[in-house]
C-alpha cells in the first residue's frame, strides 16, 4: 500500500513544453505509466520517449525504454480514450489554473500541479471550482508525488527514494529531498512522499496527507516539513494530537526569517505577527511531534519518534 499514487496510476501530462517533456521522460524512465498528453494544437500526434531505464524505479524492466505518448486536444478526450486517472500540470502560470479546472471537469481523480507562479486570484477560483468534485489537487508550486518503485509524478530525483515505511509531506521541494535522502540512508525508506507546495492557496493540506498516511497500513510514521506563513502546521498539529496513532516527526524552516519578507515561496511570509516558526514549532511539540533542530536531523527525529 501507499497513498495517492501506485502501479495503477495512469498519468496524463498537461503542458508538454520543454519542462514537461524533460520531466515526462524522467517519469517514464522511472517506470511511471504515462498514457496521454494534452496539447491544443498537436492533437492526433504522438510524442516519443526513449532512453535508459532508471533502475531505482519500478523493478523488473528492460535496460531501455521506448514509449509513444498520444496527444489529445482536451483532457476530456484523453480521459475517454486512455482511462487516465491522474494528471500532472506543467502549464505556464497564466493558464495553469484553467488546466487544473479542465482536469477537474474531466473527472480526473488526482491533479498534481508543478507550476510555480500562478496568481493567487486564479487559485482561489480553481479551489472554488474543485469544491464538491471528486478531484484532489496537490500543489501548485510543488515537486510532486512519488511512491518509490511504483509511480513518480513531478520533478523530484527518483534515485534518492527507496520503498519503505515512512510517509513524507512537505511545503518545500529541496527539504523534501533532504528528508527522503536521510530516510533512505537510515534504511527506513518511504511509502509515499508528497510535496504540497509553497503557495498560500494549495489543493491538499498537511491534514489531508496526515489523514491519508494514518489510514495507510504500510506507513508506520510520518515526517512533516513546514515553513513560516499561514497556520497549516498548527492545524496539522491539532490533527496529530486528536486523530493520529502513528508517530510524527517534523521540521519548520524560517526561524531566522525577518517578518514581512517573502522568503522565496509566495506563501512563506510572517505578516502581522502571524505564521512564525516559533509558534509552529511550539504547536507541533505540544502535539507530541518530534521536531528536528536542523534539517540534518530530520531522519534522526523520525527514528526517535518511532521509539
Amino acid at each position: 500500500m501507499s497513498v495517492l499514487v501506485d502501479k495503477s496510476t495512469r498519468l496524463l501530462v498537461q503542458g508538454m513544453g520543454k519542462t514537461g517533456q524533460f520531466h515526462t521522460d524522467k517519469a517514464i524512465a522511472y517506470g511511471t505509466n504515462v498514457v496521454a498528453a494534452v496539447h491544443p494544437t498537436k492533437a492526433g500526434t504522438t510524442t516519443s520517449f526513449e532512453g535508459e531505464t532508471d533502475h531505482s524505479g519500478v523493478a523488473g524492466r528492460d535496460d531501455t525504454y521506448s514509449v509513444d505518448v498520444p496527444v489529445y486536444a482536451t483532457v476530456a478526450d484523453a480521459v475517454a480514450e486512455t482511462g487516465a486517472n491522474a494528471s500532472v500540470v506543467y502549464v505556464p502560470p497564466p493558464f495553469a489554473a484553467d488546466a487544473i479546472m479542465e482536469a477537474t471537469a474531466a473527472g480526473v481523480e488526482l491533479v498534481v500541479a508543478i507550476t510555480e507562479g500562478i496568481p493567487v486570484a486564479d487559485m482561489i477560483v480553481a479551489k472554488r471550482y474543485l469544491q464538491g468534485t471528486g478531484t484532489r489537487l496537490v500543489g501548485p508550486n510543488c515537486p510532486g508525488v512519488i511512491t518509490p518503485g511504483e509511480c513518480k509524478i513531478g520533478i523530484m530525483p527518483g534515485y534518492i527514494h527507496e520503498r519503505g515505511r515512512i510517509g513524507v509531506v512537505s511545503r518545500s521541494g529541496t527539504l523534501t529531498y533532504e528528508a527522503v535522502h536521510q530516510l533512505t540512508l537510515l534504511g527506513l525508506g518511504q511509502t509515499t512522499a508528497i510535496g504540497i507546495g509553497g503557495d498560500p492557496v494549495n489543493g491538499t493540506s498537511f491534514v489531508d496527507c496526515l489523514s491519508l498516511f494514518e489510514a495507510d497500513p504500510e506507513t508506520e510514521g510520518v515526517i512533516m516539513i513546514g515553513e513560516i506563513g499561514g497556520t497549516a502546521e498548527e492545524e496539522a498539529a491539532e490533527f496529530v494530537k486528536a486523530e493520529m496513532s502513528k508517530p510524527v516527526a517534523g521540521f519548520i524552516a524560517g526561524t531566522t526569517a525577518p517578518p514581512g519578507k517573502r522568503m522565496g515561496h509566495a506563501g512563506a511570509i510572517v505578516s502581522g505577527g502571524k505564521g512564525t516558526a516559533a509558534a509552529k514549532i511550539e504547536a507541533m511539540a505540544d502535539a507530541g511531534i518530534v521536531v528536528a533542530e536542523t534539517p540534518s536531523d530530520m531522519g534522526e527525529a523520525m527514528v526517535r519518534a518511532l521509539g
Binding site: 512537505s170 518545500s172 521541494g173 515553513e227 513560516i228 524560517g254 522568503m263 516558526a277
Partner: peptide, 11 residues
C-alpha cells in the same frame, strides 16, 4: 530551493 535556503540560515 526556498525551503532549504531558509533552513540553511536557521542552521
Amino acid at each position: 530551493g526556498a525551503g532549504l535556503a531558509m533552513a540553511t540560515m536557521d542552521t
